[in-house]
Design a protein around this nucleic acid. Sequence first.
DNA 1: AAATGGTTTAACTTTTTGGTTAAACTTTTT
DNA 2: AAAAAGTTTAACCAAAAAGTTAAACCATTT
Lengths: 201, 201
Amino acid sequence: MMNTEEQILAAARKVFINKGFDGARMQEIADEAGINKALLHYYFRTKEKLFERIFSESFQLIKPVFNLALGPEPDLHQFIRQFVNAYHALLKQMPFLPQFVLQELNRNPGRMIGLIGKQQIPMNDIKRVIDAEVKKGNISAVSPENLIVNLISLIIFPFVARPVLQEVVFGGDDAAFDNFLNGRSESIIQFFLLALSPEKS
Amino acid sequence: MMNTEEQILAAARKVFINKGFDGARMQEIADEAGINKALLHYYFRTKEKLFERIFSESFQLIKPVFNLALGPEPDLHQFIRQFVNAYHALLKQMPFLPQFVLQELNRNPGRMIGLIGKQQIPMNDIKRVIDAEVKKGNISAVSPENLIVNLISLIIFPFVARPVLQEVVFGGDDAAFDNFLNGRSESIIQFFLLALSPEKS
DNA sequence: AAATGGTTTAACTTTTTGGTTAAACTTTTT
DNA sequence: AAAAAGTTTAACCAAAAAGTTAAACCATTT
């Protein structure tokens, strides 16, 4: 059984992620948790503090992790395949997290400080790997920055823009969009590797 | 000189796009416009009505337009080149619109009804064109839905995710990100056409 | 079982906020 | 220039929302 603090966090998670900081109401969180509103303040003092707790865990959850497979002989193709599959699967579990985090970050970029740590993306390592692969003739030339942004864009954007995309590309068909998402991971990988493959006509 | 109504709209645009509906304050809009708060209600009755006006124009502005070049012999490569350049240039003019529209749409998808009209994306036409190009051997096989989503994702996402991307990929360097955006359009086109080019090893 | 410390609640306070109103001011009409 | 219509403001109102408090409740210790 969940204790009170856990109940509050679960309710806060739900409400904050749905409504954002500005749209969330302490009363709604209390109702969702089935407890008295005063308990929110007893356990977390202020709305801001409670929010920070939820935002922090959310950010850590979906912050893309690039610490994979950067040993001496890294396989870029394998890396891309694994990363896309893993990250896409994660987002399917929590489809609203990206929109939530991006929204709050746009509203207040300062929220990021302290949350990134040294987990920064090792751009130099990645650049080294890509340059090596280009030199070996395994891939066509791309700037590492664009490569990484492309990768992340293709994975995340459909989750952020689901309402418009579903309406405008899939005629509002909910099941059709779910179906699209199911094949999406494979499609991204294929598209990406095609774009990277060398020796074009 | 701007009349009162235009001043209000300009102020509302600024505040709503920055803060969203929930975060915006009527008093702040009035201050921004340099007028008395009562005038907001005199001209637009309610916060909701004023917001709808701003949201509607915003949505129309960034709704991707696909009515280009779908005549009898459409050139897909040319179309992609033009579309990416035009849409990217538009977003550079109004970099915060996508996040604003997507946020409000996620919060309340019902806002879209009445705003799309018959401007729906002509998926069947596009599918026809792509299938024809595939058959002619001009491009490799892709589902039209994935192609369109890829295109839109690559263009829009960097604007929506600027805070994180700038921090995590560009070490927080503002000028570096601006620079990245300047070359972005060309990079997308190149990447995209590579992914579409046929006859891979 | 009395006392103690921690938990929970109902009721309350304060601040914020969207919206209203009546009066003042300005412009246009006659 | 008087009247009428339209515009703008300060002051006000009511509802909503965050946060506080004192008392009740519960569990654990002695």
